[in-house]
Amino acid sequence: MSEQKTYEGRCFCGAVQLSVSGDPAGMGYCHCGSCRSWSAGPVNAFTLWNPAAVRVTRGVEHIGTYNLTPNSYRKWCKNCGGHLFTEHPGMGLTDVYAATIPGFPFEAGVHVHYQESRLRMKDGLPKMKDLPAEMGGSGVLVAE
Results as ranks from 00 to 15, higher is better:
134 E>S: 10
89 P>F: 04
89 P>N: 10
101 I>T: 13
97 Y>S: 06
135 M>N: 08
88 H>Y: 03
101 I>D: 09
122 K>W: 00
84 L>R: 13
129 K>G: 01
120 R>D: 12
123 D>K: 04
127 K>T: 01
93 L>E: 11
104 F>E: 13
108 A>M: 11
112 V>D: 03
98 A>Q: 09
92 G>K: 13
122 K>Q: 11
119 L>N: 09
131 L>C: 05
98 A>S: 15
126 P>A: 11
97 Y>K: 13
129 K>V: 01
138 S>L: 02
121 M>V: 15
93 L>A: 09
137 G>R: 12
136 G>F: 12
132 P>K: 10
100 T>E: 04
138 S>K: 05
89 P>H: 07
140 V>F: 09
81 G>N: 09
120 R>G: 01
117 S>E: 15
111 H>E: 03
141 L>W: 06
86 T>Q: 07
109 G>A: 11
134 E>T: 01
91 M>I: 00
109 G>T: 12
124 G>I: 03
84 L>D: 11
131 L>N: 11
141 L>H: 12
140 V>H: 09
138 S>C: 02
122 K>Y: 07
108 A>W: 08
77 C>F: 06
126 P>C: 07
96 V>Q: 09
78 K>H: 01
142 V>Y: 03
101 I>W: 03
112 V>Y: 01
139 G>C: 06
108 A>Y: 12
117 S>T: 15
142 V>I: 13
126 P>G: 03
87 E>M: 12
101 I>G: 03
91 M>D: 14
115 Q>N: 09
118 R>S: 08
121 M>R: 10
102 P>V: 03
110 V>L: 15
95 D>F: 00
114 Y>A: 08
143 A>Q: 12
121 M>Y: 05
136 G>L: 11
111 H>M: 08
137 G>N: 09
100 T>F: 06
89 P>D: 10
128 M>L: 11
107 E>S: 12
102 P>K: 11
106 F>A: 08
117 S>W: 04
78 K>L: 11
119 L>Y: 12
93 L>M: 14
123 D>R: 02
120 R>T: 13
108 A>S: 07
117 S>A: 15
129 K>P: 00
77 C>K: 13
139 G>M: 05
122 K>V: 03
126 P>K: 03
101 I>E: 04
140 V>R: 12
106 F>R: 04
121 M>S: 05
111 H>G: 02
113 H>Y: 14
79 N>F: 00
116 E>Y: 00
102 P>R: 08
140 V>M: 09
111 H>A: 05
122 K>E: 14
138 S>Q: 05
78 K>I: 00
139 G>D: 10
131 L>E: 07
79 N>P: 00
114 Y>T: 02
112 V>L: 00
106 F>T: 05
80 C>M: 06
97 Y>M: 13
119 L>V: 01
91 M>F: 06
79 N>L: 09
130 D>C: 04
123 D>T: 01
90 G>D: 15
141 L>R: 04
114 Y>D: 01
93 L>F: 03
105 P>W: 01
105 P>N: 09
86 T>I: 10
80 C>T: 03
82 G>F: 05
82 G>E: 14
104 F>N: 13
130 D>H: 06
90 G>E: 15
128 M>P: 06
98 A>I: 08
131 L>S: 07
98 A>P: 08
101 I>F: 02
115 Q>D: 13
91 M>Q: 15
134 E>D: 14
121 M>A: 05
92 G>F: 11
96 V>H: 06
99 A>D: 10
126 P>E: 05
107 E>G: 09
77 C>E: 12
130 D>M: 02
110 V>W: 01
